[in-house]
Simulated scan of single mutants.
Amino acid sequence: MAGLDATNIVYAYDIPAERPWSRVIKKGQMLRIIDSEGQQAVDALLYNADDSAERYSAQDTLREQGSAYIVLGTQLISNAGRVMARITADTCGRHDTSAGCCSCESNAVRFGEQTRYQHACRENFILELCKHGLTKRDIVSNLNFFMEVPIEPSGDFTVLDGLSAPGNHVDITMEMDVLFVISNCPQINNPCNGFNPTPIRVEVHEA
């Protein structure tokens, strides 16, 4: 799918470094997320656009796939056990859905009290969700595209330098109308963004 016809693009936007974004993407449409400069983590949440009580479930997704990672072919499963979307192309290799999103509180615990007021993904999600009548209570375990989080047999994991190179992309094809919410991760205290948050590009393609 890397050579998709550009005339099929119905929407494109460059999300600035550290900023949130959201859009309703229709069933059958494909969202391409492009890591424009490389090593940029992209946190994401998915909600059924017609009933936000149904939303992405990391636990159901991992159980259904029998894998600790999100890879080509992974079905993204909702808390109702339905397929919300599928990974239909991927030039990076694998993605995380276990490490969660950074927050002011977790920054303070992990990196010191002086980082508490740095911008974080949880705050990005709150800012974007409020546009759709949702609140912080609607934040669930999220996806982390392009984020390298190897999980040891013991269950321990560590955030490492991202695997993605400039221009790497992941394609997500919707199986229902989905409210797709992104935080272009602002983290500067661990290597998920190469300590330098950068822009990403999103494109919506018709089937």
Results as ranks from 00 to 15, higher is better:
V149S: 06
Y69S: 08
T173N: 09
R63M: 12
A68V: 06
T158K: 11
K131I: 04
I151L: 12
A108H: 04
V159S: 00
T7R: 15
A68F: 11
D5W: 09
L76P: 05
C101E: 09
N79H: 07
C192D: 01
S103M: 09
K26V: 02
S141P: 11
P150K: 12
F180D: 11
E206P: 00
S22H: 01
G73M: 07
K27I: 07
I25M: 07
D14F: 03
L134H: 08
E206R: 15
K26D: 07
S164T: 04
N144W: 09
K26P: 01
D177H: 09
I200D: 00
T88C: 12
V149H: 01
N107G: 01
S98D: 05
A49H: 03
E113M: 10
S57E: 02
S67D: 14
I182S: 02
N196I: 01
I15R: 08
S36G: 00
C102Y: 00
T61P: 06
L127F: 12
D35F: 04
E206F: 07
D50E: 10
E113V: 09
T135I: 01
I200Q: 03
N193S: 04
P150H: 12
G112I: 04
I70N: 14
H132C: 00
E54T: 03
D138E: 12
F125W: 04
P186F: 11
N79E: 04
I172F: 06
P153N: 08
N189I: 00
